[in-house]
Measured scan of single mutants.
Amino acid sequence: MASQGTKRSYEQMETDGERQNATEIRASVGKMIDGIGRFYIQMCTELKLSDYEGRLIQNSLTIERMVLSAFDERRNKYLEEHPSAGKDPKKTGGPIYKRVDRKWMRELVLYDKEEIRRIWRQANNGDDATAGLTHMMIWHSNLNDTTYQRTRALVRTGMDPRMCSLMQGSTLPRRSGAAGAAVKGVGTMVMELIRMIKRGINDRNFWRGENGRKTRSAYERMCNILKGKFQTAAQRAMMDQVRESRNPGNAEIEDLIFLARSALILRGSVAHKSCLPACVYGPAVASGYDFEKEGYSLVGIDPFKLLQNSQVYSLIRPNENPAHKSQLVWMACNSAAFEDLRVLSFIRGTKVSPRGKLSTRGVQIASNENMDAMESSTLELRSRYWAIRTRSGGNTNQQRASAGQISVQPAFSVQRNLPFDKPTIMAAFTGNTEGRTSDMRAEIIRMMEGAKPEEMSFQGRGVFELSDERAANPIVPSFDMSNEGSYFFGDNAEEYDN
């Protein structure tokens, strides 16, 4: 993207840094990872977990959730003011799984939030270390993106479920800051804005008074975040219109849905970061690795190297396929839920299948599930090659597409044709070009129609051997075009429920 120079890199967003050079960025990201790792080690000690239990991804998720809940100030305040039966607002906890007599047992633990905050700050040299908290939120978000298709949420806001490739980060909490905003897809931002506008339509006082002023500035800020994701002048001009509207209503909703559809071809720039579970960072720190000293990046080879040398386990339900569970977590670790499966298959070195073909449910185990038949197995999170994460949407291309997802959002900077089903997408653009945004709409449609099938995206960008740390010898991959490109292809993934 041309304006790259004016933006802070995501590592800076990730670490609240002012302008830093590459070495400083690597050190501050490393410091953040160190903090998460030290916190995780301490929690495993508190909970008396064995090494194996500490490497269980379900335990990692519970521990991450506990610290996120302990620092969720708004919710904590709300819980104190609106006490609900049987919930102690000062405590947080969740299921911890232990191996007892050759069987997995679930144990519900409860801790004072104050105590968890103390352990977290102690692991982070006394700081609140917001960057580390956001990092864990993005890992949870990436896992949700890989596990669930947001059909219901899309339909509720009037969008087409086939636009799911635009929904990265749709389950990120509001408090995820600049680093969170960077990884949100165009569809996620559109959905947040539509929800806001709908509230304004239904509630006369939404934009009024002292609160209304705050609401208005939040609305304009979200519009600017979305505008910054678009790469064409016409899309940005249309966002200006939406932002400046005196009284946002149905016309703005129409414009936003139009823009979301246009992003299936004229893709937005959305950041991709490899955020790993805390149970990967903990053992690495415990083994003596100093992330701050060595430096770390979320968008280069580092996460690949770390996963190459990590042992992570997962509980497996009786009829689940461990290899499929591994694929789910591998995609989440690489922030690749909406990437082209052919690119992923090449990088991973084994075939990556669409969601609907995987015999696996989510990673988390519900409290009512029976533990008797639970097994555990090693997650295979290694890769054959590594590639640089991208934040450009890439230019655009036609490809055989599917009944489910009709476009992709690249996660890796790797040369390819970008699949999208042009006739299906263009069919949504018939007729409606009147109104105050008509010239911009016409211009956007013209650009979409001009998108050429034979153009290559990320020209000359390749993948790298894991021994090639400096990215000196790019390998331009070859793809098996007979395979499906979309992950949520004609899909039956479970729906995400809060």
Rank of each mutant, 00 (worst) to 15 (best):
R382E: 06
I25T: 03
S245E: 06
M66N: 08
I225H: 10
A284P: 13
R19S: 03
M239A: 15
S376M: 02
D51C: 04
E114C: 09
Y385H: 08
C275N: 12
N309Q: 12
A451C: 00
A366N: 04
I116V: 15
R208N: 06
R121C: 12
H140P: 03
I316N: 12
Q399G: 10
M238H: 11
G460S: 14
N321G: 03
R150Y: 07
L166Y: 01
D88T: 00
T146F: 02
M159P: 01
A401M: 00
Y97F: 14
F412Q: 01
L193D: 00
N473R: 15
S297T: 15
G462P: 08
R361H: 03
T6G: 00
K422S: 12
H82I: 04
L381N: 13
Q415K: 13
R261L: 07
V329K: 01
K113T: 06
M189L: 15
M222W: 07
T171I: 08
M448L: 15
A336D: 11
D128A: 14
D112F: 03
L298P: 02
R461H: 02
H82P: 00
E454C: 14
I63H: 04
E14V: 04
S383P: 00
S314P: 03
F429T: 00
S377M: 15
E73N: 06
I57T: 05
R441K: 09
S392K: 08
K87E: 10
A2I: 00
L110V: 12
E375S: 12
G17I: 06
G490T: 00
T188N: 04
E220H: 10
E494P: 11
T215S: 15
I253Q: 14
M440L: 05
E339S: 00
G93A: 06
G404A: 15
R118H: 09
G228R: 11
T390A: 07
R117I: 13
G209S: 12
E192V: 03
I41M: 13
N144M: 14
Q20I: 01
M43I: 10
P474M: 09
I253C: 05
S262H: 04
A337L: 05
D16H: 08
S60W: 10
A403G: 04
K229T: 08
D468F: 02
S335W: 06
N432R: 09
F39I: 04
M189E: 06
E292D: 04
R55E: 06
A178P: 13
L315Q: 06
C275E: 07
E320G: 10
R156P: 06
M371N: 05
E14Q: 06
E53G: 04
D51Y: 04
S376T: 08
E484H: 02
K90R: 15
A401D: 00
Y289C: 11
R461S: 03
G93M: 11
A233R: 01
V270C: 12
N247I: 08
H135W: 12
I41Q: 13
G180Q: 07
T188Y: 06
L172V: 07
L264N: 04
W386S: 07
W120F: 11
P283V: 12
R19F: 12
L172H: 05
R216K: 14
T147A: 06
E443M: 08
Q364Y: 05
A85Y: 14
K351N: 10
K357T: 07
D290A: 07
A403E: 02
R106K: 14
E484S: 07
R99V: 08
A271K: 12
A233C: 10
S165W: 00
R121L: 14
E369K: 09
E46F: 13
D34T: 07
V183P: 04
T130K: 15
V67P: 01
Q20R: 12
G282K: 07
P283E: 00
E115P: 05
N498C: 03
A403I: 01
D468Y: 03
N247Y: 12
D51F: 02
P322F: 06
A70P: 00
L133D: 13
P423D: 04
M440D: 12
K98P: 03
D439F: 01
K227V: 07
I347G: 01
N202V: 07
P354H: 07
K229S: 07
R355F: 09
V312D: 03
M447H: 14
R389A: 13
G132M: 09
N142Y: 09
L143G: 10
D340G: 12
S402A: 12
G393E: 09
F39V: 06
D255A: 04
E220G: 14
P248N: 03
M137N: 06
G37Q: 07
L154S: 01
E443P: 02
Y111C: 02
W120H: 09
D497S: 14
R102L: 14
N492R: 15
G132K: 04
Q398P: 02
G132W: 08
L259Q: 08
M136T: 05
D439P: 03
R400P: 09
S217R: 04
Y219R: 04
E465F: 00
I444H: 00
N125F: 12
V155Q: 08
D203H: 08
T151P: 02
M239G: 07
L166Q: 15
V155A: 10
E294Q: 15
A178E: 02
G249Q: 12
L56P: 09
G295A: 08
T23R: 11
L266R: 09
A178R: 13
R65Y: 01
N144F: 03
L47E: 05
D101Q: 10
N417L: 15
G169F: 05
A153K: 03
P453L: 13
A401I: 01
D88S: 13
R361T: 08
S345Y: 04
M1G: 10
G93S: 09
S310E: 00
I116D: 06
K31F: 05
L143E: 06
P419D: 00
H272A: 06
K7A: 00
P173W: 00
R361Y: 04
S141D: 12
R106H: 10
E114G: 05
T151H: 05
G450P: 09
D480M: 03
E375H: 12
R162L: 07
P318N: 04
R389M: 03
S3Y: 15
Y148R: 01
D497A: 13
N211L: 15
V280Y: 05
E292T: 13
R195M: 07
R261W: 11
A2P: 00
A387T: 10
E252Y: 06
A218S: 15
E369C: 06
K113V: 01
W104S: 04
A251C: 11
K98H: 13
P477Y: 00
R221G: 07
L358C: 10
I194R: 07
E115F: 10
G349E: 12
K305D: 02
S69E: 05
D34Q: 10
Q405M: 15
L193H: 03
Q308I: 15
S269G: 11
K325L: 03
E495W: 11
V190L: 02
L328A: 05
R243A: 10
L264E: 11
V186M: 13
N432F: 14
R75V: 04
D34A: 14
R102P: 02
F346H: 05
L154T: 01
G180P: 03
I138R: 01
K90Q: 15
E53H: 05
D302Y: 06
G17N: 14
Y385I: 08
I301Q: 11
S3P: 00
E46H: 08
S413N: 11
V285R: 02
Q327P: 08
R156S: 09
I257M: 14
M43C: 08
S176R: 03
E380P: 02
A442S: 15
P283A: 15
M159N: 03
